[in-house]
Design a protein around this nucleic acid. Structure first.
Ligand SMILES: [Zn+2]
Ligand SMILES: [Zn+2]
Ligand SMILES: [Zn+2]
Ligand SMILES: [Zn+2]
Lengths: 130, 130
DNA sequence: AGTGGTTTTGACAATCATTCTCACTCGGGC
DNA sequence: GCCCGAGTGAGAATGATTGTCAAAACCACT
């Protein structure tokens, strides 16, 4: 077994930090632009690589906008879902134990295993006009 | 009030029919290739246009694969969700009244309006190997 | 400080689904 | 037959994401 080195580079910290300080879901392109303009030189490929790693480790949540862009957000640990404002991007984390149970039951009833699910709610928040 | 012209062209029928006869979610590219090779000349742009229209009218369901491809399927009318096999693509339509109620409640509690939600379950079906 | 081996980076090219363009075709009403 | 707008489609354009690969950064160890 080879020990996987785990170097924490300046670039990786920068991406993680940028995510941690942001409240809303952000695209890779946006992050890249923001980091650069805030005097933080980084390559686009590196941003994508880092985000993939973070997502794979479960340190950030990913979801895809309607126009196919992946957006990332630093989230609390543990399984949860999102309530997102389509206008301003405000995001609320929500949990639904009964939904989890329902999904498991449905899966079992149909003989599916290794199940995973995605559930997002999108609407307009109280602070945004119609 | 302007009368909306609604010409039903050969190409549109072909797409609708191809979807109606297929059981699983299919990509636009796939549909295009299939239609062509079955002696049904059609342009790729037309396939995309037609699918957009069908989806907009609620005649087909759309969801996005993990690699960002949109896939389409002719579905029963009414609001429902999907249980999809990640290996063979087998799809089961499922309903969850309690989930709908939960989503509405959560939305209301947080002051969100015009809410919509997406919920898909993905797993491996009983007929597919590990 | 130097050396060698490994990991990470980043500018740039490549991929690829989807959308755009726009000249052309079709078909029904006149 | 002629007209005209809806519909089509080949090819170009878009744009996010991924691949490439040489150069840079890092880490022992000397
Ligand atoms: Zn869940
Ligand atoms: Zn809002
Ligand atoms: Zn299966
Ligand atoms: Zn629902």
């Amino acid at each position: 077994m080879v020990q996987t080195p785990k170097r924490l580079t300046r670039q990786q910290s920068a991406v993680a930090e940028a995510l941690r300080s942001g409240e809303d879901f952000t695209s890779a392109q946006d992050l890249h632009a923001r980091l650069r303009s805030s005097g933080n030189p980084i390559g686009l490929a590196t941003v994508y690589r880092t985000l993939q790693t973070l997502a794979g480790d479960g340190d950030v949540d990913v979801l895809r906008t309607d126009d196919g862009e992946s957006v990332y957000r630093h989230c609390s640990t543990g399984h949860h879902h999102h309530l997102v404002c389509r206008a301003c991007g405000k995001t609320v984390e929500v949990e639904g134990p009964m939904v989890e149970k329902w999904a498991d039951k449905i899966s079992a009833q149909n003989g599916f295993r290794d199940v995973r699910h995605t559930l997002e709610i999108i609407g307009t928040c109280s602070e945004c006009p119609a």
